[in-house]
């Protein structure tokens, strides 16, 4: 489930999501919110103003529907959101490949959200609020975000921090390993997390049936999807050829 990354040696964390396994239960969404201190919805929140770092789309196909979890793709090439931020609140960590969004630096201009083709970024339209007392149950490894800032999935960086700290405590200078919350939560084990610099994992990501969302855009996502169903690949991948094949099947 979890691959190793060596500090000093750069990692390129990535995910492979098996769409044939995902049953759209939403456990990843809730586990993510708990792990990353995303507040519960406000009374007036809607799917359009809501805060979700990962969202499970229900996609109708010619046969039965498919469920597609979409989080930040941690784009590797020409990361669309990094170059647009006017004040360097977004960066790509060269040692992990994770695209970081720093709410403390964020001006709230939302230009990065306009730039993201995956709509993986969400905005704090209002002050986050927890029911009285529930703030005691927040995760100490992740800080809460203010209103007026953008946030998004960062492959559970709080867990990465915790792993680094634990390794340091044991005096280890070698490798750390960790598992993002959604990966741990998925009851169908549909999400696999690993280091794309690891040959075995990379081969899996490139295996037949695997694809990335909107690949022709050239954004180089590090989240891969796989499915054995042609109609799902057609409806999800955004590839014109695949869409035609999907309709035929």
């Amino acid at each position: 489930m979890t691959r190793r990354a060596t500090p000093g040696k750069a990692a390129r964390y990535g995910m492979i999501i098996d769409l044939d396994r995902c049953n759209g239960c939403g456990a990843c969404m809730i586990a993510c919110a708990v792990e990353n201190n995303v507040p519960p919805p406000d009374a007036k929140a809607t799917p359009r103003t809501g805060l979700n770092w990962v969202r499970v789309f229900r996609v109708e196909t010619a046969t039965r529907p498919a469920f597609v979890p979409v989080m930040c793709m941690q784009c590797g090439d020409e990361t669309p959101c990094v170059s647009v931020c006017p004040q360097n609140a977004v960066d790509v960590d060269p040692s992990t490949g994770v695209v970081g969004q720093i709410p403390e630096r964020c001006l709230g201009c939302r230009y990065c959200m306009a730039a993201c083709p995956y709509q993986a970024r969400v905005f704090n339209w209002r002050d986050p609020q927890w029911p009285a007392g529930m703030e005691q149950a927040l995760n100490p490894n992740v800080s809460a975000r203010q209103r007026g800032t953008v946030e998004k999935c960062n492959f559970c960086h709080g867990r990465w921090h915790a792993a680094v700290e634990a390794a340091a405590n044991e005096g280890k200078t070698g490798s750390v390993s960790y598992t993002p919350a959604c990966v741990e939560a998925c009851p169908a084990q549909a999400i696999e997390f690993g280091d794309l610099n690891d040959a075995a994992f990379a081969a899996k990501a490139r295996a037949a049936g695997a694809f990335r969302l909107l690949e022709p855009l050239g954004t180089g996502p590090k989240v891969y999807y796989r499915t054995g169903r042609a109609e799902v690949r057609g409806a999800v991948s955004g590839l014109i050829e695949e869409a035609k094949n999907g309709q035929r099947s």
């Binding site: 960066d91 960590d93 060269p94 994770v98 970081g100 960062n154």
Partner: peptide
């Protein structure tokens, strides 16, 4: 120093 996420949580 690598990136913001090194120290920001």
């Amino acid at each position: 120093s690598h990136s913001c996420l090194d120290c920001h949580k």
